[in-house]
Computed example of a mutant assay.
Amino acid sequence: MVEQSIWMQKVAADPGHSAWYIERFRSMARAGDDLAGEARLVDAMVSRRARILDAGCGSGRVGGVLAEAGHDVVGVDVDPALIEAAGQDHPGPRWLVGDLAELDLPAQGVTAPFDAIVCAGNVMTFLAPSTRREVLKRFRAHLAPDGRAAIGFGVDRGYEFGEFLADAAAGALEPDLLLSAWDLRPFRDDSSFLVALLRPA
């Protein structure tokens, strides 16, 4: 039995949490806030009409933009409410409910591998700690040999950057480029955010 994610623990403790999250991003979109920074970076990493996995897709803000850019997007999230909102707000991609620690898309009839995987929005820090390495191994299993995964999260969220990179190495993923933001600022020892572009080792 896979340990329940921190996200779903939050949902169990507060049944309104998912609705709050969905409305938060809908409100930001209505206000004209820039919600596409992660998608712009991933779009620049791949060729036109690439196959992209949005891992921990939430309500679809990243995968939706990538689909509008012409990519073949599959989004996976553990929270059914977020997947429902993704389908409502961003029709086009295939949105699936699933735990990243048990990710096996070919078993669900989804063709793999993917040209890129994006894991934005601090998703790695919402996983159950015991599942982090398994999630990264499953990312590697779903990546094309020349594909890359773009994973971003902040410091002080219970997952040290060094530990993450060690877990990635254990999952046969190695750094291609480390950044401190989705807008391509270089990573430094005192960076408070990490965007790791990882390739199969």
Rank of each mutant, 00 (worst) to 15 (best):
G75Y: 00
E102L: 15
A149G: 02
V74A: 07
E84D: 06
F187P: 00
I6S: 12
H17A: 15
A29K: 05
D99Q: 10
F193M: 09
L197R: 06
D54G: 03
R157F: 07
I117R: 08
A116R: 00
F153I: 03
V62L: 02
R61C: 11
C57I: 02
G75S: 08
G63S: 09
F139A: 06
A55T: 01
A55W: 00
M28S: 15
L96R: 04
A120R: 03
A168C: 06
G60K: 01
D183T: 10
P15Q: 01
S191H: 08
A196C: 09
A196E: 09
F25I: 05
I151Q: 01
R30A: 12
P200Y: 00
R133T: 15
D14T: 01
I83N: 09
L53T: 00
L178T: 03
L194H: 10
D77C: 04
G152N: 07
R157E: 14
A36K: 11
F114I: 08
V73W: 00
P175G: 11
D43T: 08
F114H: 10
G152K: 03
A181W: 11
R61N: 13
F164G: 05
R24I: 10
G98S: 09
A149K: 01
L82N: 04
A12N: 14
M45Y: 06
N122Y: 00
